[in-house]
Design a protein around this nucleic acid. Structure first.
Lengths: 214, 214
DNA sequence: GACAAAACAGGACAACCGGTCTGTTTTATA
DNA sequence: TATAAAACAGACCGGTTGTCCTGTTTTGTC
């Protein structure tokens, strides 16, 4: 008979739990995800789970601070910072996410908004952690607008307002996309946003100046 | 000893249950609301509850189809239809809700979005009911835009896109407002939306006509 | 190799949940 | 007033939940 061996791998164990928890919390939500199912899916025993995450709340907090924040960073902040301008970055992200969802065939929604809606009112610690991610998201976009402005673009745009609307439009569009299981709402909102910006936006300064010079 | 009397009031009983359920589901969410707490808060026994709503799902479905739909109708659809134009209607609702939240002192979020995020992926019947409310919401705004257009306004605006963005911006702004407990995001998004529409939007027709007549 | 701490295993448990069931009272109808 | 259905009361139950607890194994350190 072969003896059973065990290899301690705390980091790997923790990662596996977070992987499954991230997936469960987004697909089923926090309250609808039982630790029993989670343990089974992750192949983890109760003792191990409790060792790394003493409570369910601690697990969710880790998911928020590590995974949800990372998701926002990867799908939004980094692409926007890498883009040629804030507006172009926002456009590219809308487009990329819409394309990804259409290929995927279903819409699970925005990880941040999903948890924010369920947990913001339940617990202040949850709420604060989620609000911080929203703030970082907006700030990255606003900073990009400011960078554009020092480079001579985006004349009359208020960076914080622009960022707030970009995040809001995305969040809301994703909410409708999730509820209708139709990624098209992302494209619709992006188009409307662009059609408005086309006639104002960067050219605002020029037009206003023209009016004044008459 | 006074004898205990009972007065059957099926409609009132049903209304009281729905009142509490609507409140609970918005404040705590569906899964976090136990029927026990709900019964206690409504002063209703298990028998009565089960008589009117056989399952928790049936109760939630009634809340969605009666209360949430009514909330959207009252705070959005009716004001927009009564406004002088679609844009003015959207502006007025943003303003009114922001003012109401600021006076109230806290933000519980949009009833529709709250439940949509938690229940859309859990059950298709939930999802469909919620998607219908979103659709009616958008359609009311889009219809108003079309009415504006037959009255000579809103030249190049795509009604459906405009409606989608209006709903998305509101939903997303409310999501941030709820998470940050700050109604200011509604005002910020409205201002950005207006600053874009000021230079394009309703004046598009006039400007275009002027260009054509030159 | 001794030893303490970390890592993990797995059972146990009390609280709670939603749903069911039986029984009683009210009410509409005739 | 007879009667059946609707409206309501309240106990009950099986299953689930998150957490705790007691052991055992692995691992780093001297």
């Amino acid at each position: 008979m072969a003896r059973k061996k065990r290899t301690n791998d705390p980091e790997g164990m923790r990662r596996r739990v977070l992987d499954v928890a991230e997936d469960f919390f987004q697909a089923r939500g926090y309250h609808a995800s039982s630790l029993g199912d989670l343990m089974a899916a992750a192949g983890v025993t109760g003792g191990a789970l409790h060792h790394h995450f003493p409570t369910k709340k601690a697990l969710a907090l880790a998911v928020i601070e590590e995974r949800v924040a990372a998701a926002v960073r990867e799908t939004w902040i980094e692409p926007v910072l890498a883009a040629s301008s804030a507006r172009e970055g926002v456009r590219a992200v809308f487009e990329a996410v819409a394309a990804e969802l259409e290929e995927q065939g279903y819409v699970r929604g925005c990880p941040l908004n999903n948890l924010a809606h369920e947990l913001s009112l339940a617990d202040d610690e949850f709420r604060l952690a989620l609000a911080n991610i929203f703030a970082g998201w907006r700030q990255a976009i606003a900073d990009k607008v400011r960078a554009d402005q020092t480079n001579g673009g985006e004349g009359g745009t208020d960076p914080d307002r622009f960022a707030a609307l970009a995040v809001a439009a995305y969040s809301g569009a994703m909410s409708m996309a999730k509820t209708s299981q139709d990624a098209g709402f992302l494209r619709e909102c992006l188009k409307e946003l662009e059609s408005l910006q086309l006639s104002s936006g960067g050219s605002t300064v020029r037009r206003r100046r023209r009016v004044l010079l008459r």
